[in-house]
């Protein structure tokens, strides 16, 4: 679990994060969105016990923050971090790098080799294990960094811009690995400004610009707008008034083969509208409720921020 309560941090009197509160229940993935300099990395550093907060408190994996040095160390043993840049030694091989960090995380010798092999195989890096890290592609480097973030089996994982600078294929690969980690039941805080990434992976979304502007379940934030989009094949101009005559429909807008119905009650109106359009000769291609996009929510929140 990650719980932040009025968490604040300033640098030389300049506030970087102000009174941020949120709760990520165990096993959930929370995406923290925000422009550059919004305070995402500062929040991660505070939650990992790397930076003491100027104000407020937090609880991460059962450790209360701010904490003593020993408690902070025990928190770091229970948490994993993926930084924006992979951060490995170029001259050491992938396996040597993992061995180094594995020992820093205190993974017992007898387990370290087995875990390293298992993760390297799982992420398709086994054949490249003896190659110098400097020769890896960006995607391979990020996959190795992902192994480092999780191979000590942390309960909480912080992922700071995990797909920054990756090509679409490598980004896809990393996203599917994050999805796997989530399925394993880890609590994940994902800092990103890729809205699609948050849309695809997150259970919870927070929008941050120094303060937390919006926070909630993705499904709630992007809840139905009270509109239904119906794609039809047929005479759309003729079908528009047909849809408008359905009880509970307040208005209809037409865009190419798409009718957008403004409904009083989406669940009541949808079956009736579909039946009437079909009876009028329209072939129904797709029916879905119109939801607010994450992009709209983000832009609205950021535009309204002080």
């Amino acid at each position: 679990m990650i719980a932040a309560h009025l968490l604040s941090r300033s640098f030389d009197g300049r506030p970087a994060v102000e009174e941020v509160s949120f709760l990520v229940p165990p096993g959930k993935l929370c995406a923290l969105l925000g422009p550059n300099g919004a305070g995402k990395t500062t929040i991660v550093r505070m939650l990992l016990g790397l930076l003491p907060p100027s104000g407020g408190s937090a609880e991460v994996a059962g450790v209360h923050l701010p904490s003593s040095r020993d408690q902070a160390a025990s928190l770091r043993a229970r948490a994993g971090l993926l930084t924006e840049t992979p951060g490995f030694y170029d001259r050491l091989s992938g396996a040597e790098n993992l061995d180094f960090f594995g020992r820093l995380y205190g993974i017992p010798d007898r387990e370290l080799a087995a875990r390293t092999e298992s993760w390297l195989r799982r992420l398709g890096l086994w054949d490249a294990r003896d190659r110098a890290f400097g020769t890896y592609s960006k995607g391979m480097k990020q996959r190795l960094a992902l192994i480092r973030a999780v191979f000590h089996e942390p309960a909480v994982v912080f992922l700071d811009e995990p797909t920054a600078g990756l090509d679409p294929a490598a980004a896809r690969e990393v996203r599917s690995l994050i999805a796997e980690l989530r399925q394993e039941g880890r609590t994940i805080l994902l800092c990103t400004h890729h809205l699609g990434e948050a849309d695809e992976l997150a259970d919870l979304v927070g929008i941050l610009q120094r303060r937390l502007l919006t926070f909630g379940a993705l499904a709630d934030l992007t809840a139905s707008t009270g509109k239904i989009a119906i794609r039809v094949r047929g005479d759309v101009a003729r079908l528009g008034p047909v849809a408008e005559s359905v009880p509970g429909v307040r208005g209809v807008s037409i865009d190419h083969d798409r009718l957008e119905l403004d409904a009083e009650d989406v669940e009541m109106v949808t079956p009736a509208a579909v039946a009437k359009l079909a009876a009028a000769g329209g072939s129904i291609l797709e029916v879905r409720p119109v939801r607010t996009s994450l992009e709209t929510i983000y832009l609205r929140a950021v535009a309204g921020a002080p």
């Binding site: 790397l50 160390a73 770091r76 971090l81 951060g87 030694y89």
Partner: peptide, 15 residues
């Protein structure tokens, strides 16, 4: 320079 400092600091290693 190698950006390995933060990953090291994120481990349980004490100061």
């Amino acid at each position: 320079e190698q950006r390995t400092l933060e990953p090291i600091l994120a481990t349980p290693l004490s100061d």
